[in-house]
Amino acid sequence: MDRKIVFPGQFLSEKASDAGNGTYVKHGKVYSLFYGVANFKNKVSVVPFSGRYFPHVRDHVIGKVIEVTSSNWIFDIMSPYDGLLHVSEYPRRLDSSMMKKTMDIGDCAILRVKDVSAFMKVELTMRGHDLRILRMGRIIEVQPSKVPRIIGHSGSMVSILKRETNCDIFIGQNGRIWINGKDSDMEHLIEAIRMIENESHTSGLTDRVGHFLKGDEEDLGEAELVEGEFEGVEDEVLDMEEDLLCPDEIGYTEDACRKMDVLLDDERQ
C-alpha cells in the first residue's frame, strides 16, 4: 500500500529528494508536516485532513462580500486573508455609487485570484469567462483539502455528480461549492458531497459515490456477470485516484475539467 495516515513529524523517507508537498527535510530525512494522508508515489506528499484555504494565483474561488468600500469589495474567501476586488476588475465599467447595487454584503460570486503579494494582500478579479455573481442556487462549504477528491481524477467525480443529480455544480478551490437544480436533487447531491468529504481518505470512492447516487432507483439484478475481471479493474481505479491526492496537479486538471464539463453538457443537450 503506498498510502497511509500520518501525523506531524512522522518519518517518511531516507532520501531528501523524495520530499513533496506537506513534508519537510531535516538532517537529510523527510518528515510529515501535517496530520493527513501520505502518498508514496514518485515523491512523498502529505495532504492534510483539514486546514484553511491558502490563496494561489489563478485559483477559482467562491467569495462572499463582507464589506464594500469606495473602490473595493472585500470578500471572505475562507482563507486567513480577505480578498480584494477592485471596481476596475469588475467586467463592466462601474461608478462607485453603483457598487452596492451590484454586489452588497452577503452576495456571493465566482472569482479568480489575480495576485497574492508577499504581505498576503489577495487581489481578485471578475474579468474572465465563467466568473460571475451568483444569484441563485445554494452554496455549501467543505474542507479545502477535500476539493481535489470532489473533482476527481480529470473530473470523473464531478461528472458523475452532475450526471446523476442533474444539478449545475461549480467547485471553488477554497472549498465552497455552488450547486443549482431541483430542491430534491440538491439535497441528494449535498448528501453525496458530505459522503465524499467524510470518506475522502478511503479508496474506490468514485464507485461508491456512483453507487450511492444511483442506489435507490437502480435495478441491481442485471450486472452480476463480471466477477473475475473485477479486481484488476478496481486496481486501476485506485491508481488513478491516488494520483489526484497530489495538490500540485489540481490547478491544471481542475481548469481542464471545467472545460470538459461544459462540453459534456453540450453533448447531452
Binding site: S154, G155, S156, S159, I160, G204, T206, D207, G210, H211, K214, E218, L220, E222, A223, E224, L225, V226, E227, E229, F230, V233, E234, V237, A256, C257, M260, L263, L264, E267
Partner: peptide, 19 residues
C-alpha cells in the same frame, strides 16, 4: 454490488474518452 461497480466503471471510462 461488485457487478454494479463494474458498471459504474464503464461509464467512467466513457467520460474519460469524451474528455
Amino acid at each position: 454490488e461488485q457487478g454494479e461497480k463494474v458498471e459504474n466503471l464503464d461509464e467512467e471510462e466513457l467520460t474519460d474518452e469524451e474528455i
